[in-house]
Structures are given as C-alpha cells and as structure tokens.
C-alpha cells in the first residue's frame, strides 16, 4: 500500500485532482464566509483602519 502511494505520487492525475478539490473547498468556504457576514459587521470591519482610538 505504502509503496503504491509512493509510486502514484509521480502521477499528475492524482495530484491535479487533489489540488483542484482542495482549492474548490477553500474557495467556496471563503466565498460563503464572505457572503454570510452581516452588512453592519462588514462595514465595521472595513472601517477598522480609520478608527484607531486616538484622541484628537
């Protein structure tokens, strides 16, 4: 079994499919993550650089 895995490591199909699947997984998670955030939340996050708590 171990030997088999080692041999197929040189096989592009295995690599390409694994890479594609993990990529899709990450991509979809990221999109879901981004689009399920509430609007106010996103607005708050986006404005963080502009609010540094310094007294003028």
């Amino acid at each position: 079994m171990y030997k088999y895995i080692l041999q197929s490591a040189g096989n592009i199909n295995w690599m390409a499919i694994f890479a594609l699947l993990t990529f899709l997984f990450i991509f979809i998670t990221a999109v879901v993550l981004a689009f399920t955030k509430r609007k106010e939340e996103l607005r708050h996050y986006a404005s963080l650089p502009l609010e540094d708590g310094i007294k003028e």
Binding site: T22, F23, I26, F27, T29, A30, V31, L33, A34, F35, K37, L42, R43, Y45, A46, S47, P49, L50
Partner: peptide
Amino acid sequence: YYFMPKAANRPVYSYKLSIIHFWALIF
C-alpha cells in the same frame, strides 16, 4: 489594505473581496 484606506481616508472598496482575495491567494 491598511495604508490605502488610511491615506484616502475611506474604507477599502470591498471587504468581501478582500476575504476571498486572501484565502485564494495564499492557497
């Protein structure tokens, strides 16, 4: 993502896009 909003004094165009940008890019 920090200094452009700072210098322009306005938030980043799309925070959603920045989330996707991050994960897709590093992967």
